[in-house]
């Protein structure tokens, strides 16, 4: 009985698929069109652009010519000390920000869902609120707080004899990490909370009956079940940090510690919009995309090395 059902099912599905091909196509078409137009096409266009260069001759005051240079732009980009340094900088930033982000959002989620927190709904909303503030606004806001002449906090600290310079070259990355944490920890917390709420209460009850304490429950029940979500949040954060852009762009006018090539995205932006060199910008963008790809998939490979190991 079950065997026949099993073999019959795919055939039936195949038949119904054929029958529904027309309506299916209609339903999928809008998505496909927009996906191709606004996702695939720009990528292809960027890759094509990155293989060309616009060159002048003589004094450079005549009309330029556009020519195919193969991987020339990539060689130029990768041999530029500034761009390589910017890649290194976001990797350092990533190394600071990722553990911080995952740790903070996980702690917040566990505290809110511990069942003992007061007004968990209110605090969930409060922690999530900064995510609703656009990145540019958040950076402007923090920019004011980071500059001594406009920051009540720094002025207060100064009166106490503590001179803090958040935008000095030694601390600017941490200051940016703080903005990013403030903006996104609540968002990541919410993803973790959603996942926490899907864990069956029976498991906790059973563990408690077996004599497990709070920490043991977190360690042996919650965290293993939360693992896929934690991995997800980590990958989000890795990609997000490598693409660091808005914060340095907004803070740049305030400090001597942020150059026009501070992060790869900032370098690409300046190449395209200040330098009118969209070919180099495209090459930078492709390089950055590849690095993000390598790191996020590298991380996934790492955590999934042996089947479904705990961590």
């Amino acid at each position: 009985m079950t065997t026949t059902a099993r073999t019959a099912a795919p055939a039936a599905a195949r038949r119904s698929r054929t029958r529904h091909r027309g309506p299916l196509a209609v339903l999928v078409l809008p998505f496909t069109l927009f996906f191709v137009a606004f996702f695939v096409a720009p990528i292809v266009y960027a890759v094509v652009q990155s293989l060309f260069a616009v060159r002048s001759s003589g004094l450079g005051l005549g009309p330029p010519t556009r020519s195919f240079v193969g991987l020339g732009n990539y060689l130029q980009v990768l041999s530029s000390g500034d761009f390589v340094a910017s890649l290194g900088r976001v990797l350092v930033f990533s190394a600071i920000e990722v553990p911080l982000m995952v740790g903070v959002s996980l702690t917040l989620a566990l505290l809110l869902e511990s069942g003992r927190a007061r007004w968990p709904r209110l605090f969930r909303a409060v922690f999530f609120l900064p995510y609703g503030v656009p990145g540019v606004v958040a950076s402007l806001l923090w920019g004011f707080l980071y500059v001594p002449s406009t920051s009540p906090i720094l002025q207060g600290l100064d009166r106490l004899g503590l001179t803090v310079t958040p935008l000095a070259s030694g601390s600017v990355l941490l200051s940016i990490a703080n903005i990013a944490l403030w903006s996104f920890a609540g968002y990541n917390m919410l993803i973790l909370v959603a996942s926490l709420q899907s864990i069956s209460g029976d498991l906790y009850e059973a563990a408690r009956l077996d004599g497990a304490g709070d920490l043991a429950i977190i360690r042996h029940i919650t965290l293993p079940l939360l693992r896929p979500t934690v991995v997800l949040v980590t990958v989000f954060t890795i990609i997000g940090t490598l693409q660091l852009f808005v914060e340095p762009l907004v803070l740049r006018p305030l400090t001597s510690a942020i150059s026009s090539t501070f992060t790869p995205n900032l370098a690409a932006y300046n190449a395209a919009f200040a330098g009118n060199d969209s070919n180099t910008a495209a090459a930078m963008a492709v390089v950055l995309a590849l690095v993000a790809f390598v790191f996020s998939f590298g991380f996934l490979r790492l955590v999934n090395r042996k089947g479904n190991r705990a961590w």
């Binding site: 996702f39 720009p42 979500t229 997800l232 969209s278």
Partner: peptide
Amino acid sequence: LNPPGRRRRRTLAVTATTLAL
């Protein structure tokens, strides 16, 4: 991973890289 989530995030990633263009 939750596939739709991953897809969306990656879309975001690559979209941002081509945003300039």
